[in-house]
Nucleic acid binder design. Structure first.
Lengths: 337, 337
DNA sequence: TTGTACGCGTTATCAA
DNA sequence: TTGATAACGCGTACAA
């Protein structure tokens, strides 16, 4: 059984309050006589005292715990972000409670309900539901909150990549290489990220065919099969998972010429895949960093005014794309020459 | 401010204990008169009562929380396992506290110290430290515990893949294709998994050269450069991350003929990589499943006797390997023919 | 069937 | 500089 304040008080012939003060450290501890202070400290050391964080939380309402409620932790994108956030928070003395909604609004709701019973100090949320009202129904108004990856109307503590800029970058890069008509594989339109990307691509390029479904590999595979007849010159996918499905199907049952893949978010080992890929990548490290930067001041009570953080994306082409580019010339190329 | 038992008691002109009993449900609630029971329930409903889990935990010593302390959550292998474990535990009413040690024994220690102050009900641990004593120094002896992925001497609640079987399978499969000498890229030997795999490979194949370092891509890249002169016919890596580094370096600056890659754990998009890969894959779903299966009875107090769960691995070859195989014939092939 | 009273381990208030 | 005491919200033995 672990030692408590009472045990130490008995042992040192003092009172709980004195022990508490000494072990609290800082300014309150310095008001205790050096003699008893050291006696208490050595006793605590000897008895292997560890404060009971549950009791402390019940009293102080602070748990030094931040929750991360994410839509799919198995997605390498969120896994990396989660890893970075955990490391970052741990350095600041916070533990991370990880919850996974799996893009399921009901599971999201369950988690939210449980979370505010748990006295978490803050929440980082990748929302599935899109309405502020629905989310706030279960959350304390005062809870430090950062919305990650997906904007929600009316919520300002937000960190995400600029989907319009990102899509424009991707599309204009494709145009430069002579690609103006594409087939589109889109995740569920009720998920903001997919919807935004889908719309933005539609603004820049001509969409000859479209396939929508859950953001799974299976959807990607099905989409490719559906596109087989049309045989588009390029296929754009609104996230990496969908693209992985497309690429798998394409490798398994190829068509010639091979379509170019345009994709949002990094595909693992992308550079080595024998498929021309042009990819709009988010800055994951900055995303995670901004996230805790947005959260920490709230946790300290310094409630700076809310400003959404919008990060730029960048475009990367893989080796196969460069080869494709050499084969095809520059298309309707740039003004030079 | 959330409603408490006292609030409801006042509202319904009853006492806290009655309210507590009603809201506890089950057998204790049925002993309360239907009249007051319904009055209390409707009041609780109306006031939006949510039990304070912190207070409940302080009283009952149960938090319905399980911690997962993992060595690297950014590794897709652990990300997938984490995702599956979270889903599984959530279904059984447990939340998941995720901690990441990053293969750093000191961070592992920090986490362990914090964890037993947090009244977690159970722990799933991917250990960095190898001694039972060191781990148990910070953990309550009675804490339900499952060691995942890496065996520790003297600890029996364990779930991992059979590294020897796995290595043998991988090696014999390589031998069948005429590969008997390999270069080896090995993660840190103080990590059991790497050490085991390294030793087991050494038992089956002739190791012509060896490179050891942290389990990072960088190590893999450096290893490949170091092997360039020797130009081995095959390179075996003790995990996926190392292999990804090797493959990246190889793609960037190829040598001919291309070495075959033997690797433990799945490489994302492996099947499509233009490099012959033969891979020993763990059964991730069963790993996660067995993990909670090992934990749940302990949580319920049914302390079944401890039996390590050891799962078999299977070998998978990618497309490029099959092509390589066709080019090279069967080597010193099987007895048939 | 219901209520009273205590304890979980800690911090915070007040008085000495 | 210290100590007694009251919370925090909940569960439960004991009493009525």
């Amino acid at each position: 059984v672990p030692a408590t304040l009472v045990d130490i008080a008995k042992e040192t012939q003092t009172s709980v309050s004195t022990v508490s003060r000494v072990l609290a450290g800082g300014i309150v501890a310095s008001r205790i006589s050096k003699e008893t202070r050291e006696r208490i400290q050595s006793a605590a050391q000897k008895m292997g005292y560890r404060p009971n964080l549950i009791a402390r939380t019940l009293r102080t309402r602070r748990s030094n715990t931040v929750a991360l409620l994410v839509s799919d932790i198995a997605n390498p994108f969120f896994a990396q972000i989660g890893s970075l956030i955990e490391k970052n928070l741990h350095q600041h003395g916070y533990a991370l409670l990880l919850c996974n909604s799996g893009e399921d609004p009901q599971r999201e709701t369950e988690h939210l309900q449980l979370l505010n019973q748990r006295a978490i100090d803050g929440l980082i949320l990748v929302p599935v539901s899109r309405s502020k009202e629905h989310l706030m129904q279960y959350l304390n108004e005062k809870l430090p909150l950062v919305v990650l990856d997906r904007a929600v109307d009316g919520m300002d503590r937000t960190v995400y990549s600029d989907q319009e800029q990102s899509a424009k970058l991707l599309c204009s890069s494709m145009k430069e290489h002579g690609i103006s008509k594409v087939a589109l594989v889109c995740g569920p339109s009720h998920v903001l990220t997919h919807r935004r990307r889908c719309d933005a691509v539609g603004d820049c390029l001509e969409i000859v065919e479209k396939h929508e479904g859950p953001a799974s590999r299976e959807t990607g595979r099905a989409a490719f099969e559906a596109f087989r007849l049309t045989h588009p010159a390029a296929i754009v996918c609104t996230n990496n998972i969908l693209a992985m499905g497309v690429i798998e199907a394409m490798a398994q049952n190829p068509i010639d010429p091979q379509p170019v893949i345009g994709v949002f978010d990094e595909i693992p080992m992308m550079h080595l895949l024998p498929v021309p890929i042009i990819c709009s990548m988010q800055d994951i490290e900055k995303l995670a960093e901004s996230c805790v930067a947005q959260l920490l001041p709230q946790l300290s009570g310094e409630d700076g005014h809310a400003t959404p953080i919008v990060l730029p994306a960048r475009v990367v082409k893989n080796h196969a794309f460069e080869a494709w580019q050499r084969r095809n010339g520059n298309g309707q190329a740039t003004n030079s020459a």
